[in-house]
Amino acid sequence: MKNILLLICKRIGASLITIFVISLIIFIGVELLPGDVAETVLGQSATPETVEAFRKELKLDLPPHVRYATWLNHFVHGDFGNSLANKRPVAELVNWRLSNTLLLAMVTAFIAVPLSIFLGILAALYRNTLFDKMISITTLSFISFPEFFIAYVLIALFSVQLNIFPSLAIIDDNMGFFNKLYAIILPSLTLTCVVTAHMMRQTRAAIINVLGSAYIEMAEIKGIRGFRIIVYHAFPNALSPVINVVAVNLAYLVVGVVLVEVVFVYPGLGQLLVDSVAKRDLPVVQASGLIFSIAYIFMNLAADILSMLANPKLRQSNF
C-alpha cells in the first residue's frame, strides 16, 4: 500500500510540474502574437493617450515575468480576469461553456464506452472472421476521416435528407434535459464514431494478447466456452490497456471537441476559445487553454492510477 501511495504522489507531482510548464508555454505563446493588444481592442481611431491608459489597465506596461506570476496566482485562486470583449468575468463565461462541453462529453462517453468494449470483445471472440474484418474496416474508416467530415455527412443524412435531428446544436439554460439531449445528438454521434473506433481496436488487441497466455489454454482444455473465457478470464486481465485508451479518449472528448463544436455551433468551451482567438480576447484564450490542459493531464493521471490498481505488475514498478 505504501508503494502505491508513493507512485501516486510521484504521478501527481509530475502532473503539477507539467501544468506549470504548459501555463508558461501558453503565456509565452500569447506574448509572441503579432500586434498590440490594446490597439487591436480599441481600434485604429484610438488616440495614443487612450491606448497607453488601456495598456496600464491591462498591466501590459509591467515586465512579462511579473504579469505571468500575477496571472498564474490569480488563476490558482479562481480569478481568471475580465473579458476584453464584453468586460464580463472570464470565470462566468468559462463555467457555463465548460458545463456544456462536459455534458456533450458525458453523453458521448455513455454511448461510446460500453459500445466500444462490447464490439472489442466480439471482435476478439470472432477474430479473423468476416465479422472481425468488417468491424476493422469500419473502425479504420472512422479513424481516417476527420471529425468535421463525419459531422457534415451526419448533417446531410439526418438533418437534410431525413430531417430527424437539428443541424445546429444550440442549447440554453431554459431547455429541459431531454431537449438538450435531442439538440446534441448529432455532435454526440460524431464524437462517438471517432472515439469508439480507437477504444474498440485497443480493447480487441488487449484481449487477443491475453488469449495467448497459459491459463487461457488451460481454461480451453477444461472445456470452458470462448465467450466465458473472454469475459471472465481474458478481459479482467486486459483492463490496464483498456483503461488507458478509455481515459485518453475521454480526455479527447473534453479537449478535442473544438472542430465539432464549431461545425454544430455548439456553445461549449471549444467554441468560446475559437471566438476569443478571433477577437484577441487574451484573458479568455489563456484561461480556456489552461483549463483544457488541466483536464487532459488529470484524465491521464486518473488512467495511470487506475492502471496501477488494475495491474499488480505496475504496482511493483518504479515508473
Rank of each mutant, 00 (worst) to 15 (best):
F142K: 04
F145W: 13
F145H: 08
F149T: 09
I150A: 10
A156C: 01
S159F: 02
Q161K: 13
F165Y: 06
P166F: 03
S167F: 02
L168D: 09
I171H: 04
G176N: 10
F178D: 00
N179C: 04
K180A: 09
Y182L: 01
I185D: 03
L186K: 11
L186P: 13
L186I: 02
L189G: 05
T190L: 13
L191H: 05
T196R: 07
H198A: 11
M200Q: 12
Q202G: 07
A206Q: 00
I207W: 07
G212L: 03
A214L: 06
A214H: 05
Y215K: 08
E217G: 10
E220I: 05
K222E: 14
G223L: 04
R225H: 09
G226E: 10
R228M: 10
H233V: 04
H233Q: 09
A234E: 10
P236K: 04
A238I: 07
L239M: 03
L239W: 02
V242C: 14
V242W: 07
I243E: 02
N244G: 11
V245T: 14
V245G: 01
V246F: 11
N249D: 11
L250P: 13
V254H: 07
L259Y: 10
V260I: 12
E261T: 14
E261P: 03
E261L: 03
F264A: 01
F264T: 02
V265G: 14
Y266A: 08
G268P: 14
L272N: 12
L273R: 02
